[in-house]
């Protein structure tokens, strides 16, 4: 094994400090007595109470989570298909078109993406009667479309990096392409799928502009509700919500780790007794 220099962990720690400095600050200010998120006014948990009495924020958070989970999942499926087709299918008729279409959403400014999809949905409703009105469905479609571009880039980079000989060997042995994909390619590119899903989920959860365009009455995502409160300065109950999200995810991650470590230790114990 290669010798590790202490340099790497140090940079890594510095990086995490950079990432978490604002998070620590927003967690701290969620316990602030004062309504101003920048001035410390004493310890209080009142914003947590205020949060649970605010159906608007909780409803929006729920909408956002559903949209992000669905959009990220669909985006991973479509983005992976697009990347796979581009990297493994050689030449086909719509190749150049697909290359362009899968990259372009990255560079389209949000305003234009939002507006153009809104115009499309309005026109589709007039012509086909679907989607009837706008709301969660239309936000999911919009998010899927731009998130799949990100997924495709990540998966493509993984496919470029991987050794193709294994796939070829399996094909030579007579495996169906579908089989090869699911049994060989997919496990190898799985880190890219996880990375892609996480990015897509994050993108969707944080999107404000596109969602504001393509939503309709009654379907507000969390960033929309937060942004509408910005005129007054961010109120600490949003900080409380962020703290809760971090706590829940942190707890979940911790639990999963614990289960994994325990499982591994038991395996080792079993191996030892055998």
């Amino acid at each position: 094994m290669m010798r590790r220099s202490p340099f790497l962990p140090l940079i890594c720690i510095a990086g995490f400090v950079f990432l978490y400095a604002p998070i620590v600050s927003l967690v701290v200010f969620s316990f602030n007595e004062s309504k101003l998120v920048t001035v410390w006014g004493g310890f209080s948990t009142k914003w947590y109470g205020a949060l649970f009495r605010d159906p608007q924020i909780l409803g929006a958070a729920w909408v956002s989570l559903q949209v992000a989970a669905i959009a990220a999942t669909v985006a991973v499926i479509l983005g992976t298909l697009a990347a796979y087709v581009l990297m493994r299918f050689g030449r086909f008729r719509s190749r150049a078109l697909l290359t362009g279409m899968v990259t372009a959403p990255l560079v389209m400014p949000e305003v234009i993406t939002g507006l153009s999809l809104l115009l499309l949905f309005v026109a589709m409703e007039q012509i086909f009667g679907w989607p009837a009105g706008r709301g969660m469905t239309t936000i999911i479609i919009a998010h899927t479309t731009f998130a799949m571009a990100y997924v495709a880039v990540v998966v493509q980079s993984r496919l470029t990096g991987m050794d193709q000989s294994v796939e070829e060997a399996a094909m030579d042995l007579g495996a169906r392409p579908v089989r090869v994909f699911f049994d060989i390619t997919l496990p190898i590119i799985s880190p890219a799928l996880v990375a892609g899903w996480l990015l897509a989920f994050t993108l969707s959860l944080d999107d404000l502009v596109v969602a504001s365009f393509v939503t309709g009455p009654g379907a507000s995502t969390l960033p929309m509700v937060i942004f509408s409160k910005v005129r007054m300065g961010v109120s600490p109950d949003i900080n409380a919500l962020a703290t809760i999200i971090i706590a829940i995810v942190g707890l979940g991650v911790g639990l999963a780790m614990w289960v994994m470590v325990r499982g591994r230790n038991r395996d080792k114990a079993v191996q030892r007794t055998e």
């Binding site: 604002p22 998120v37 960033p223 942004f227 949003i238 971090i246």
Partner: peptide, 26 residues
Amino acid sequence: RTLLLLLVILPFWTSFLLRVYAWQGF
């Protein structure tokens, strides 16, 4: 590894505006 990976993405599940406001505070 998985823990660190999730730690990288976790700050981004709060809210973009909150993070920007936190930076403004700094």
